[in-house]
Design a protein around this nucleic acid. Structure first.
Lengths: 229, 229
DNA sequence: GGCATCTCTTGAGCAATGCTCAACATACCG
DNA sequence: CGGTATGTTGAGCATTGCTCAAGAGATGCC
């Protein structure tokens, strides 16, 4: 959880101060700017650059279709250097997915100073909006990306758990196993709805968010039924 | 959808007629018997054998951790032969996942001659039971397995769509976009619950199934809220 | 039986690629 | 200006996905 492309591009590029050129500064799953192949970056900047390239190149293709060579070429560095920063291709991929996860979690934050119901609604709205705006990379990183090892699984679990915690906290519910299980499952439902919506636009985002929130209430109203009996 | 390990082992093995030796014949995601490295099998039998090996070896490790060499060695054949049956490692993997999907769909069938509510209940119970009995391979093939290309995506979509169709048919509902979207999302919820349950055993299967069925009713009762408005 | 043919099977070999490592170069510091 | 730290390179190794021409076992026909 220590590496991630920051909002600013590498400091060695004096002409690219804070925002990207073409698209207006949008904190997305897609990508930071391309680096003029300057050399001798600091550890942090190099990591950021490489992870940024990963976010970019892996948004549209699965990990097995991306070679270390391609990343190195895009970054203007040698293959070897990539292994200096990431001991393994899997580690590199995990770092990229971790960055994507952080962006997602960053987008779906709670507003601490509003009523509980409104907090949940805003989290869901942000989450749904994020998927709507970044469908392809979202699917690439969080569905298709599952392919690998325990590291990845841990990242996904962490995202789900964090979102679940936020909803539980926002709705002032006690966090017992049954309610956690319920909210986690509800997030799976919301995700499915959001991906469907982003794909087919069968309804409005507002209707979908309201539906999701109401459904959560239904689910929690039945939570005793789930527990033992 | 044409290749799949059948119930019977390869015919060239005269001492293994129909059921596996150690575990009683259980239609699972796990594995058919190991083949004595006889030679010269028929196309169908060889495919079945190879897919069976895949079901076995991929139940516990991701695809990138399994080499064609390992499969060939396990089957007692040369690397080259595997590419005679599957033009690509991805094709091989897709065939294995397809076999796993078929087993899952086979397990979660509707009983056509009972009341609608009971039909839905039995489908869900079978699905939940399947995950409970085969958690590791289920996760390996249907979560972790997502990693690859469009072929895989198509298989998963097909599973979801088929399950959705069955539930819609069993509950005598009209299949409009909103109801399909709802039922698909509900399946995502059920899957999450089932995986959680298989992992932590926080409640009983019966309670979980009843909960799932009741929740579906809640969801469908709200479906107008989802549509336009 | 002998020959032809079909199909399953092999194994050498190529190219791509993940990964290692010793050497190099550039920045910083005294 | 020399020394040290560290970012960087590129040759090279082993693995592995994949190709291909040739071999071997079965089957059919005379």
């Amino acid at each position: 959880m220590s590496e991630e492309p920051a909002a600013h591009p590498a400091p060695t590029a004096p002409s690219a101060p804070l925002a990207v050129s073409a698209p207006p500064a949008e904190s997305a799953l897609s990508a930071p700017p391309a680096e003029p192949r300057g050399r001798r970056l600091s550890q942090d900047d190099r990591r950021r650059q490489l992870i940024g390239i990963g976010l970019q190149m892996l948004a549209s293709r699965p990990i097995h279709a991306l070679s270390i060579d391609a990343v190195a070429a895009e970054a203007g560095i040698s293959r070897g250097l990539l292994f200096h920063y990431f001991p393994t291709k899997q580690h590199y991929y995990a770092a990229v997915v971790r960055a994507a996860a952080r962006r997602l979690l960053n987008a779906a934050q709670a507003h601490p100073h509003v009523a509980p119901a409104e907090q949940v609604r805003s989290i869901v709205a942000a989450y749904v909006g994020f998927i709507d705006r970044h469908l392809e990379p979202y699917v690439a990183f969080f569905h298709r990306g599952a392919g690998a090892d325990a590291d990845l699984q841990e990242i996904f679990d962490n995202v789900r758990d964090t979102l679940t915690d936020r909803v539980l906290a926002a709705s002032k519910l006690e966090a017992n196993p049954a309610s956690r299980m319920t909210v986690r499952a509800w997030w799976a439902l919301v995700e499915s709805l959001a991906v469907d919506q982003a794909t087919h636009h069968a309804t409005t985002s507002e209707a979908l968010v309201r539906y999701a929130v109401d459904v959560l209430a239904d689910l929690l109203a039945r939570v005793d039924e789930l527990r033992g009996e």
